[in-house]
Write a protein that binds this DNA or RNA. Sequence first.
DNA 1: TAGTGGTCTAGACCACCAT
DNA 2: TGGTGGTCTAGACCACTAG
Lengths: 239, 239
Amino acid sequence: MQDSPDFKPLYVQVKDLLVRRLVTGAWRPGEGLPSETSLAGEFGVSQGTVRKALDELAQQNLVVRQQGKGTFVATHTPQRALFHFFHLVGDDGARALPGSRLLAVRAAKATKAEAARLDLKADAGVVRLKRMRLLGGREAIVERIALPAARFPGLEKDSDLPNELYRHYELVYGVTVARAVEALKAIAANAEEAKLLRLAAGAPLLEIDRLAYALDGHAVEWRVSHCDTADHHYVSEIE
Amino acid sequence: MQDSPDFKPLYVQVKDLLVRRLVTGAWRPGEGLPSETSLAGEFGVSQGTVRKALDELAQQNLVVRQQGKGTFVATHTPQRALFHFFHLVGDDGARALPGSRLLAVRAAKATKAEAARLDLKADAGVVRLKRMRLLGGREAIVERIALPAARFPGLEKDSDLPNELYRHYELVYGVTVARAVEALKAIAANAEEAKLLRLAAGAPLLEIDRLAYALDGHAVEWRVSHCDTADHHYVSEIE
DNA sequence: TAGTGGTCTAGACCACCAT
DNA sequence: TGGTGGTCTAGACCACTAG
């Protein structure tokens, strides 16, 4: 086997098996996995090999390990949302999750751009959301979201969508956002945005174009946020 | 020892010892470290413990491991600069290091802001640089840099500073940039920037405010870049 | 007290690289 | 061929948690 072109170390194979189980929902988010020793027995490898696989999963934030308790499937807690997926911080260093005011929800056929970004067929359905988000009680972000309708059936009929969408995706639709890629630009506010954000037209805004990926590796949300960064900034830590 | 309040696992202690050696320049960047077995013998621990320490150092990009060759002190190659510290990418996905045109260099006393950001005394000396940077041959970034003079003696007299400053810091001043924190905002171009970048005054620019830290944990460079993101974007990967 | 993950050790074999 | 890091194993002890 070592000589085959797609040779993989044992611990990687174990990791892949575990990821597959996570993807299929064998364990729900927050639920505990079997112990290292029992997984080792099941897979016929040593505990050390299972440990290395679990360590890598923990590093990728797919599981959380707690000494004396066990290994648990990662879940979107408010803490995680705040420190992991939301990078806007007050210039004074204060972190706070933004409030939300839903402006519009509707189902539609995907535009070309949506189909391309979400990897959908040309005539696939999407759900579009538009939200105002508030930082420190003040309107600061205009957010447009597109979701593949197939993954989120009936979401457009959901009466009151919560502020923390990723938790909602996980609890209601079984979709766990595991990874995201953001593209940032400076843009000028258009008339509508300027009005919503109480700024002059043409005021500089930070555009955060985010594509979020589920556990299975497929894109499940396209989100474009236009942010007033007068009193806030986006934090990026290198290394 | 396990009961002392500052108990540290053996591998962490080994790691700390190795970091201290890296900081003091016991091995030059690019140079090979002793093998795992010889380090294990020297420290009186097992090879596995040294391995765990080295694995963490490799994860933090302080060393690079190569199977069959050895473990080497990380160095600022063009590749590393391009993929690790420079996050602006063409909208078509093309990555390229920006060219540079030096506009000004001079030594001065630190402003209050500089002293605060670089953790210097009020009357400490700094060196200030101002550069134009070009993406695809086009003026795209105005960059202002402040350095503590104590760490970079005589840099202001350096006739032709290279494009890749971090490599220069490392080779000439023995300062290895190991980590950085960036704060991003959207701002409006002032008259000078607009002229330099051939934009209308007030055009939106992406401000990247970066504080870079050396191996020893001290801030060694404050860099503020104002970028025209009409054809480029800043990439941020989450997870 | 029993079970979990965390640390540490020792030894074996493998893949890769230089010579 | 010899040395390096990469993988895998087995066993020991520790710290933490829960009942």
